Computed example of a mutant assay.
Amino acid sequence: MTKTLADYDFETGEVLLLDKPLTWTSFDVVRKVKNTLRIKKIGHAGTLDPLATGLLILCTGKKTKEIDLIQAQEKEYTGTFRLGETTPSFDLETAVDMARPYAHLTDEEITAATAQFMGLIQQTPPIFSAVKIDGKRAYELARTGQEAEIKAKSVEIKTFELTRIALPEVDFRVVCSKGTYIRSLARDLGVALGCGAHLTRLVRTRIGEYRVEDAFTLEAIEALRPPRPEGEAPARPRRERPHTAPNRAGLQYFAALQADALAAKEHEAAKDAADAPETPTE
């Protein structure tokens, strides 16, 4: 029998699987679930970047003691790299800062380049990350234009396969250890190919035996919101973070891309309407 949200005892302790929406931070999701279900003790087992979607594991009550154990398990991701362009954040959070030719690369050359990133490797996290430098988060320094040195660390990549090559896009599946940055893998693959690359899409599909297919959406959580006791007024009006408001996460470039895409779509729709033949009248 499949367990439904109504069967959970969040106060005693549960492991809850969530499918994180695009542009939401992991903390946004924790706060949303905590406020919606009125859970006193809750935390997440492994951060997902705002521009990543997929499996985010929340632990409540006594199950928060298992957070470290869950975080230590291997992760699986799927997504897309774009060859020929780099960004300072290694993803769409920041604007493209360099472009290089990529059309000369063959599928065989691209696939062969992945081999050097298999097994135990040294990887340098992105400057736009939550790594701490002298007590500050690296992304805080990066967003104010400060330079900082981040040390490489040892990570393990167990699987790195390319599932689609349609230049400049390359789809992938990666199985890796805790602490692996897929954005850094994009950067490193681009360096190995000599054309640069950055991450344009990322989905976390698995942590250990937990899978995104079994995760709940935030809409399902919202539907379970308990009624407020009669006579009890909220301390302050609820303010939900819009799905398309990325400013707090520093996603100005992504927001600009979305605005351009919407403008292009509206322009195309207007053009189609203007070109459409007039409907004859009686």
Rank of each mutant, 00 (worst) to 15 (best):
K3Q: 10
A6S: 13
D7C: 02
E11R: 05
T12M: 13
T12V: 13
G13R: 01
L18S: 04
L18G: 02
K20E: 00
L22H: 12
L22V: 06
L22E: 12
S26W: 09
D28P: 11
V29W: 04
V33F: 01
K34R: 13
K34F: 07
T36S: 02
I42G: 03
I42W: 08
G43N: 01
G43T: 00
G43H: 00
A45V: 07
G46I: 10
D49N: 01
L51C: 01
G54P: 06
L56E: 00
C59R: 05
D68R: 07
D68E: 13
L69H: 13
Q73P: 06
E74T: 14
K75Y: 06
K75N: 02
K75D: 02
E76S: 14
Y77M: 03
G79M: 09
T80E: 07
T80G: 03
F81Y: 08
L83F: 11
G84E: 07
T86F: 09
P88V: 06
D91E: 03
L92G: 00
E93P: 03
T94L: 11
T94Q: 11
A95I: 03
A99Q: 14
A103V: 08
D107A: 15
D107L: 12
E108D: 15
A112I: 04
A112C: 01
A115S: 08
A115Q: 10
A115Y: 09
Q116M: 13
F117Y: 15
F117W: 15
F117P: 03
G119R: 08
P125R: 05
V131W: 09
K132E: 11
D134H: 13
A138V: 10
A138C: 09
A138S: 14
Y139M: 01
E140Y: 13
R143W: 11
Q146H: 15
A148H: 11
A148Y: 06
E149I: 15
E149W: 12
I150D: 05
K151G: 06
K151A: 15
A152E: 10
A152D: 08
T163L: 02
R164L: 11
K178R: 09
Y181C: 05
S184Q: 09
S184T: 14
R187V: 04
V191S: 08
C195T: 09
R201W: 05
V203H: 14
R204D: 01
T205M: 05
G208M: 05
G208V: 08
E209H: 15
Y210H: 15
Y210A: 07
T217R: 11
L218W: 02
A220Q: 15
I221N: 01
A223R: 05
L224V: 08
L224D: 10
R225K: 11
P226E: 00
P227Q: 06
R228P: 07
P229M: 06
P229L: 04
E230W: 07
G231P: 07
G231A: 01
P234G: 09
R238M: 04
T244F: 13
A245D: 14
P246H: 07
P246Q: 04
R248H: 14
Q252M: 14
A255S: 10
A256Q: 15
A256E: 15
D260L: 10
D260T: 10
A261G: 03
A264Y: 07
K265E: 15
A269F: 07
A269I: 08
A274E: 13
D275R: 14
P277L: 03
T279G: 10
P280S: 00
E282Q: 11
